[in-house]
Design a protein around this nucleic acid. Sequence first.
DNA 1: CCTCGCGCATGACACTTGTCATCATGAATT
DNA 2: AATTCATGATGACAAGTGTCATGCGCGAGG
Lengths: 219, 219
Amino acid sequence: MRLAGGTSYPGTELRVIDILLADDQELVRTALVALLELEDDFHVVATVGRGDEVVSAVERTQPMVVLLDIEMPGLDGISAAIEVHRHYPNCRIIMLTTFGRPGYLRRAMESGASGFVVKDAPAATLAATIRSVAEGRTVVDPVLAGEALSIGQSPLSPRESEVLGAFRHGAPVAEVAAHLHLSEGTVRNYLSSAITKTGTKNRASALLRAEELGWLSSP
Amino acid sequence: MRLAGGTSYPGTELRVIDILLADDQELVRTALVALLELEDDFHVVATVGRGDEVVSAVERTQPMVVLLDIEMPGLDGISAAIEVHRHYPNCRIIMLTTFGRPGYLRRAMESGASGFVVKDAPAATLAATIRSVAEGRTVVDPVLAGEALSIGQSPLSPRESEVLGAFRHGAPVAEVAAHLHLSEGTVRNYLSSAITKTGTKNRASALLRAEELGWLSSP
DNA sequence: CCTCGCGCATGACACTTGTCATCATGAATT
DNA sequence: AATTCATGATGACAAGTGTCATGCGCGAGG
């Protein structure tokens, strides 16, 4: 069965695409395998539930395409993509994630990914993306791509996004300052400029906005 | 094929369980359908992507079991469960969610659900839960049930959790006070006691803790 | 070379938050 | 009838937070 994309004529032999799937939720992972295996030109050769298991699984199974969720324990999807791309540059990577954060998209593509699909997309989109990417093309959800271009990249300096991100657990300034080996004043200055640049009025909303745009560095 | 649970002998006729699936992410929804349809005693009669479409879909298709994600646009899963349970008390409900918030579990069961499965669980667990629930039993992940019992219910008064929840978007006190038609002082008092009861030091961490335990009222 | 941006720091100031004491009301218990 | 308790309010005070001016050193680019 084919959900979308590609062409196959009677008598044409099928080129099976070997896929590795990385997603932290077991049920979703298994379900996606069931979905992908409905296509007769897809074959899932391995699945992993942690980012830090991706590279060794790629080594073992040599898949053609790797589907990577961004939110994963151990190692996030972007970092995993960088690792895979460094060791196996011929291996195609598709990011598959819940949120279409424009900043994520940019970093994903810079990390060596060839495709970006949100979990809100229909199954046909995923199938079509896998086939296109396997053939060497680069595929990004057009809506997302437009958003990413219109919003542009993060206005936050690396340090600003690092400091802002350090407040994700609601710690007070003093703790964050100690943790980053900075003075409290410095932390408040970075915070202040991050608040200004995000167009918000306090750290909490700055954090929310930065997060929804994918402007925060490493989790 | 059967992943787990139940018994079937050669010659025994199969009782097919009609299922309605509600999940906001199209890809996950489709994938879960593919997974469930692998079982020859499951049949997915309808899927919806919004909480406020659940009841009418139940009316139309009269499923035996409803699988409800908690996070959904339109109407959250718990409220949807209450509606379904009121109109169709014979229809069995299973909550299927990303997080095992103990508070969610409690409210889910009070809302008339018969089962609670986290998306981290293996597919066999879901299948077994569906079969058990269809036969009239009540099934809750034992780990989760233990947690819920050990933590107990929310110590926050309804008003406290409402006020605390109003800070989810990072608004300052003045705005929240205006929005809730309260004086600023009152808001700060509720906030203060919520902070105390969650054992935290500021509203941000109070919010995080309350959220992770499922202590906040309506989204 | 010299400016510009970034990283880092200090100190001062105004404003926001968190805590506490106190008080009033109405509903539910005892 | 007395007590408890959630709701709602005020005022005062201490901490925490956000802004700004100012300073220094460094590296990249005009």
